[in-house]
């Protein structure tokens, strides 16, 4: 177990716990920030996709999902973000190195993105409503079922959205823009009341 210093999130200074906005007695949105254990992007070449999928399956014990489906276990989620490209959000020690050793350049590419994204969880009865105020995709359950993901943007800032339940979403946002996204979500949520934990 390597002991790294604590990571500092750009939201640490702004995500003050409490209840805010219109109806503080019954907030309709609940926000929290989750630091991912490690976030790794894996890419395959068109002719090596099966090799990469196999490596992923061996290391994560998960069947590699086809977008928009995602796959989960207790400590790993796999989200497909493009053809032959996956994002692995894992609480598994040393997974990046293991992937790198399993997937040679001949077969694909492994890129660490642990520090490049902040995960914001948006949940509650108005979660979809708040997200729809800034992201132009259909958040209805039919168009965006539980357990699927979409890649879109908010004002040109890319965001990967994973619907984890009917009323909750994990947003993978760029670290450098995280405060901007946070500002938007909290402003939009203040209309219905929100709690930060």
């Amino acid at each position: 177990m390597v002991d790294f210093p604590d990571r500092i999130s750009p939201l640490d200074a702004v995500a003050e716990p409490g209840v805010f906005g219109t109806d503080t007695n019954s907030p309709k949105v609940f926000l929290s920030e989750n630091l991912c254990g490690s976030l790794i992007q894996v890419q395959a070449w068109p002719d090596t996709i099966s090799v990469v999928e196999k490596a992923l399956e061996t290391l994560t014990k998960l069947a590699v999902p086809k977008a928009p489906e995602t796959a989960h276990s207790e400590n790993v989620s796999i989200i497909q973000t493009g053809p032959g490209r996956w994002l692995i959000d894992a609480e598994v020690e040393g997974l990046e190195d293991k992937l790198r050793s399993k997937i040679s350049a001949k077969n694909g590419a492994v890129t660490g993105l642990t520090h490049a994204r902040v995960v914001v969880e948006v949940k509650g009865p108005k979660a979809a409503w708040v997200l729809a105020s800034g992201i132009a995709i259909d958040f209805s359950l039919k168009a965006f079922p539980v357990g699927t993901s979409q890649v879109s943007h908010h004002h040109e800032i890319g965001v990967t959205i994973h619907r984890t339940s009917e009323e909750s979403f994990d947003l993978y946002v760029f670290t450098s823009f995280a405060r901007g996204i946070w500002h938007w979500i909290t402003t939009a949520s203040s209309e219905v009341g929100y709690a930060v934990s």
Binding site: Q41, T111, L113, H115
Partner: peptide, 8 residues
């Protein structure tokens, strides 16, 4: 493979 790692 090209990946922006500006934020990483």
């Amino acid at each position: 493979a090209l990946t922006s790692v500006s934020d990483e």
